[in-house]
Design a protein around this nucleic acid. Structure first.
Lengths: 348, 348
DNA sequence: GTTAGCACTCTCTTTCGGTGAGTGCTAATC
DNA sequence: GATTAGCACTCACCGAAAGAGAGTGCTAAC
């Protein structure tokens, strides 16, 4: 085990060095920059072993080594240390969040911006996908002619609205009737309801109102189902040009940029909303082939203890995992806290 | 003039050829591919003249010529022909617009998508920036605790809403009072109003309600002023990789991609909302330095005859101006028509 | 087990003709 | 006088060859 310790000391040094320089690391570099106290020849032997074990790769026979995905995995699982994110950053984030109270879109935007600014990586934020909501209040506001604004307030304190267009021009009264009817029926009801639910008392409404009802029900469904395709807010997609392994490889850059603009791939990348606090996917571990030379760090933020969305960064596999994981953790915490404070808290 | 005709025939051929191939055009190419009926030697002489006149550039002494910005400008001003956009495309666009009736965001998104699909260029759409609105109806909906949803419907049929947070918890009645008060005062009033306007009848409200009023007024202001920074929806930013002059030049690509993600530069690019139906900016003509090796075609779409936003494409200067201008024209028409039909028409 | 030494490997850079597309100029032709 | 054929010249592009440099693996000595 003593011997293995040395091996992994060397591996650790190689990883740190490669993360910093993006250049294959040779045995002499290790000998000189990190004083492990053994000669380059010995280090060479160890490196050969590490290569055999699958932790190192050699771009060509006479070059230094670079860490493999497996090495990064080991690094993340075994060697990674949390880094303290400066307190003033936390404060900045909080005051920013407070400035945009209630403006969900803006909050997500700013989160992505901060994430990129701190990590120098492309950041992604999925807009909250909140399912299983219970409607508390529903309003129908007449705009003009056939146009009606549907406003839904959920028990969880989420407000959604959308414009709908009826087949005819309603009176204020009709809309009020329908809204009242629905408010009575829907209390405590999930947003996914069946038409059958209304059968009982539907006769209270006039035929015209019943028609409106049907359309409103349809509108509610689309309002709450549009989340099926999650939207992503991205920031700093051109940060990728910072990294020589991309800057010197047009194909790689092209592949990255094309993928990062594809919503379908991003959803795939962020699918699993599991309970791991922070998830790290390294290179080939990514389900999405296009990101197989990237690493993705992501975490789910929550509302009332329930995961509703994901934030993360994407970048070269040789990213600074210690720091990035810490940043993501911090921001996820802050975001969760802010959301719960600003729109949560009323759940039954 | 006869002689000049021939010169410009040659110039025209060179431009067409270069647009298609992205390769410098030589005199023999012109002689063979475009039968002007004169020998390459004569063409060479004419080309030398055209270069002297500033219409052609020579990447190096012994290469063919490429058109200068000035040549494209001449082309656009003098030679460009409108191309008929297929009818089925018009139909597609219309049916698409009808499917997303009222969903402004989605409409803009789809417009950008179509634009890219048709032109193979990066497309940009600015969200409508509608000023000088008159409020017709205003609602205050209690969400929970201090949270209130403000819904404003304008005479022009535009609906805007935003969440606000009061300093205390209001009753339904208070909100109704304030809303009614504002509705009375605001009818026929611009969204930019002064606090003084209310002085007259404000005593009808309780002190608490007056406080709420002040906050609502503030909220209305931000709701209608947030347009100051116009948002852009872009699509197909990676189309740039199609074009060898970018694909083979990482710096150029980097500059382009960095610029296309910067909102401030895009606003600059799209500032002038003049009455030209379609605007073409070629290379150095662009006020934005970062786009000096690109051309921008843009047009303003309107609501009730008033320009409210811009759509456009950005790409290499050797783009197919005839086709792209026609496409932009068509889409602008359709968008204007759709908007006016769906939310306009009620203006006094 | 460790290390010094050395031959070897392989990339990267530079150099150097060769090729080919295209030009400008001159002299002949219409 | 305009047009064209002919020709020398230019310059990017390509591939081969040579040299440098970083790093390795192996062997033999410590």
């Amino acid at each position: 085990m003593k011997k293995d310790d040395r091996k992994f000391d060397i591996l650790y040094s190689i990883i740190r060095d490669y993360i910093k320089t993006a250049e294959p690391v040779g045995s002499r570099t290790i000998e000189k920059k990190y004083n492990i106290g053994i000669s380059s020849a010995t280090i060479r032997n160890e490196m050969a072993d590490l290569e055999e074990m699958g932790y190192l790769l050699q771009p060509h026979t006479s070059s230094g080594r670079i860490p493999s995905d497996k090495a990064y995995r080991l690094y993340v699982d075994r060697f990674m240390k949390r880094v303290d994110v400066d307190n003033y950053i936390r404060d900045d984030v909080r005051s920013l969040y407070n400035r945009y109270f209630g403006e969900l879109e803006e909050i997500m935007n700013k989160t992505a911006q901060i994430l990129t600014k701190l990590t120098n990586l492309t950041s992604l934020v999925s807009t909250p996908n909140i399912t299983g909501l219970n409607i508390r209040d529903l309003r129908l506001i007449h705009i003009e002619d056939e146009r009606v604004l549907l406003v839904v307030i959920t028990k969880q304190g989420i407000v959604k609205n959308g414009e709908m267009r009826l087949n005819g021009i309603p009176t204020e009264q009709m809309l009020e009737h329908v809204a009242n009817f629905l408010n009575l029926c829907l209390t405590d009801m999930q947003t996914e309801f069946s038409a059958a639910t209304f059968a009982a008392s539907i006769d209270a409404l006039s035929p015209w109102e019943q028609k409106i009802l049907a359309q409103v029900v349809e509108a509610i469904k689309t309002l709450f189902n549009q989340e099926e395709d999650i939207r992503f807010i991205s920031n700093g997609v051109t940060e990728i040009f910072r990294y020589p392994e991309f800057r010197n490889d047009m194909d790689k850059t092209k592949r990255f940029l094309e993928a990062i603009h594809r919503n379908d791939l991003l959803s795939y990348l962020f699918t699993a909303m599991d309970d791991e606090p922070v998830r790290v996917r390294i290179g080939e571990e990514n389900e999405v082939e296009q990101f197989s030379d990237c690493s993705v760090i992501s975490a789910t933020y929550k509302l009332n203890g329930r995961p509703v969305g994901t934030i993360g960064v994407v970048g070269p596999t040789r990213m600074d995992y210690d720091y990035c994981v810490s940043v993501i953790e911090t921001l996820t915490d802050e975001l969760t806290e802010h959301l719960t404070e600003s729109i949560g808290g009323k759940e039954d």
